[in-house]
Lab assay of single mutants.
Amino acid sequence: EVTIKANLIFANGSTQTAEFKGTFEKATSEAYAYADTLKKDNGEYTVDVADKGYTLNAKFAG
């Protein structure tokens, strides 16, 4: 089991951190699915991958 950390950075400057656990593939998929649920209210996002894929920095356009 691994933990994927998602740093969510919103256009207004606020941030949120979420963690997803499971296999690498499952946890990564859940992190992206969570970011997708936030698109409606926060706009499209881009992701910078860090820490060999164990940290995802998602920046929302607003």
Results as ranks from 00 to 15, higher is better:
Lys5Asn: 06
Phe10Ala: 03
Ala11Val: 09
Glu19Thr: 12
Ala27Leu: 00
Leu38Cys: 09
Gly22Asp: 05
Gly43Thr: 01
Val47Glu: 00
Asp51Pro: 00
Phe24Asn: 00
Gly62Cys: 08
Thr37Met: 14
Phe24Val: 07
Asp36Arg: 00
Leu38Tyr: 15
Asn12Phe: 04
Ala50Asn: 08
Gly13Arg: 04
Leu38Gln: 08
Leu56Met: 07
Ser14Asn: 12
Asn57Cys: 07
Lys21Gly: 06
Asp48Glu: 15
Leu8Val: 09
Lys21Trp: 10
Val49Arg: 06
Phe60Trp: 05
Asn12Pro: 03
Ile4Tyr: 00
Thr15Met: 14
Ala6His: 01
Gly62Ser: 08
Ala11Gly: 09
Asn12Met: 04
Val47Ser: 05
Ala31Glu: 03
Tyr45Arg: 03
Thr55Cys: 07
Lys26Ala: 13
Ile9Cys: 12
Gly22Thr: 01
Ala6Leu: 15
Gly43Asn: 02
Tyr45Ile: 04
Leu8Asn: 02
Glu19Leu: 14
Ile9Val: 11
Glu1Asn: 11
Lys26Trp: 11
Glu1Ala: 10
Ala31Tyr: 03
Ala33Leu: 09
Ala6Gln: 04
Glu19Ser: 10
Val49Tyr: 09
Ala35Ser: 04
Tyr34Arg: 04
Tyr54Ser: 05
Leu38Val: 05
Tyr45Val: 05
Asp48His: 12
Thr15Ile: 14
Glu30Thr: 06
Tyr54Asp: 04
Leu38Thr: 01
Asp48Arg: 09
Glu19Pro: 00
Val49Cys: 08
Asn12Ser: 08
Asp41Ile: 12
Phe10Tyr: 06
Gly62Trp: 06
Gly43Trp: 03
Asn42Ile: 06
Ala11Leu: 08
Asp41Gln: 12
Ala50Trp: 11
Thr17Arg: 09
Gly22His: 01
Glu19Gln: 09
Thr46Gly: 04
Ala6Gly: 03
Thr15Cys: 15
Ile4Met: 02
Ala18His: 14
Asn57Pro: 00
Tyr54Pro: 04
Ala31Phe: 15
Gln16Arg: 13
Lys59Met: 12
Tyr54Thr: 06
Ala33Cys: 09
Asp51Gln: 01
Lys52Thr: 07
Thr28Ile: 13
Lys52His: 15
Glu44Pro: 14
Thr37Val: 10
Ala50Met: 13
Lys59Ile: 14
Lys26Asp: 12
Lys39Trp: 04
Thr37Leu: 13
Lys59His: 14
Lys52Ser: 14
Thr28Asp: 03
Phe60Glu: 04
Lys21Ser: 11
Gly53Asn: 04
Asn7Ser: 05
Ala18Glu: 10
Gly62Val: 07
Leu8His: 02
Thr17Met: 10
Val47Asn: 01
Ala35Met: 15
Lys39Phe: 08
Gly22Ser: 04
Ala6Tyr: 03
Ser29Gln: 14
Asn42Gly: 07
Ala50Ile: 11
Ala31Cys: 05
Asn7Leu: 10
Lys39Val: 15
Gly43His: 01
Tyr45Phe: 09
Thr23Glu: 08
Ile4Lys: 00
Asn7Lys: 09
Lys26Arg: 12
Thr23Leu: 09
Gly22Lys: 00
Asn12Ala: 04
Thr55Met: 06
Ala18Gly: 05
Ala27Asp: 01
Thr28Cys: 12
Leu38Pro: 00
Tyr45Asn: 01
Tyr32His: 06
Leu56Ala: 04
Val2Asn: 03
Ala50Phe: 11
Lys40Ser: 10
Asp48Gly: 08
Leu8Arg: 01
Lys26Ile: 11
Asn57Leu: 07
Ala27Glu: 00
Thr28Pro: 00
Phe60Ser: 03
Tyr45Ser: 01
Phe24His: 06
Ala50Gly: 11
Ile9Gln: 09
Thr37Glu: 12
Val49Leu: 10
Ala31Ser: 02
Glu44Ser: 11
Glu19Phe: 15
Thr17Asp: 05
Ile4Asp: 00
Gly53Lys: 01
Gln16Cys: 15
